[in-house]
């Protein structure tokens, strides 16, 4: 059981605790030349605000070069009850970053007795992305999106990041990953202020459809295997993921609309 002298205490920081206990070694591994490895990459994610909060969505495909390495990867996950994180980039480091981020939010909440503010969570993720910069320089780039419901302001907020940990708050929508140009454009055209939850979810679903249509690394809805993108909303009631039956109906509607074009 770890005990620290008052001046040496890692406080509520879990990554710092890992360093003090010598368990962080894996993160400091030498990644020189790792860029030439063919590791799985995760792709397109989007987030947009609507009247009661935010919608987050991401496709399920991971690719290694020209091959599909996973069909049912979950790149959009809850960070805690009132926020979610979505990732694009090298899948291994990205999943590890998400795991550490989720753990850090919970660790902070337990040690301090209160949860971090949404801004504090966004800042925390920024530092983690910044910490990944040496790996990013070797090709292991991780670019997350962060969105959540700010309980202090009573509104949904979202952030985009760059590889250096730069943190950019956006008012309307953000997109990341290989299909972000197409997905972002669909949302840009369809976005209205204070949309309903239903309309916002439909727009996110359409954005991923169009991205999958134009970008080979983005997976579309897979009716054959019953795999649909992950779409979730974060509101004052917390994180709610849409179930696959609901998404199947929405994608059928989109397919019907595309057929009728």
């Amino acid at each position: 059981m770890p005990f620290f002298a008052p001046g040496d205490d890692p406080g509520a920081s879990f990554p710092e605790l890992l360093r003090r206990t010598g368990l962080a070694a894996a993160h400091d591994a030498d990644l020189r030349g790792a860029g030439s490895l063919d590791v799985p990459h995760a792709t397109t994610c989007v987030a947009l605000t609507f009247a009661d909060g935010v919608v987050m969505a991401g496709d399920r495909r991971a690719t290694s070069g020209n091959l599909i390495s996973h069909r049912s990867m979950e790149k959009v996950v809850p960070a805690d009850r009132f926020s979610g994180v979505a990732i694009a980039g090298a899948a291994g480091p990205a999943m590890e970053m998400i795991r550490l981020f989720q753990l850090q939010l919970e660790h902070y909440e337990k040690v301090e007795g209160t949860a971090l503010s949404l801004e504090g969570k966004a800042n925390q993720l920024s530092m983690m992305v910044r910490g990944n910069l040496p790996a990013a320089m070797q090709g292991m780039v991780v670019v997350p999106l962060f969105a959540g419901f700010d309980l202090l302001r009573g509104a949904g907020r979202l952030w985009a990041y760059d590889v250096t940990g730069g943190r950019y708050e956006e008012r309307e929508y953000v997109a990341t990953g290989s299909g972000s140009l197409h997905a972002g454009t669909v949302i840009k055209v369809g976005y209205r202020t204070a949309m309903s939850r239903d309309a916002a979810v439909d727009l996110a679903a359409l954005a991923l459809w169009e991205a999958a249509d134009a970008d080979s690394a983005t997976g579309g809805p897979d009716a054959l295997r019953g795999i649909y993108p992950v779409i979730a909303t974060v509101t004052a009631e917390g994180w709610q993921r849409l179930d696959d039956d609901d998404l199947a109906q929405r994608y059928e509607a989109i397919a019907a609309e595309v057929r009728a074009r």
Binding site: P2, R99, L100, L103
Partner: peptide, 17 residues
């Protein structure tokens, strides 16, 4: 409280590892 925090740390570390 010192024991509580040590417990949270031990549990989170074990769960992570």
């Amino acid at each position: 409280d010192q024991l509580r925090v040590a417990g949270v740390r031990a549990a989170d570390l074990k769960g992570y590892q």
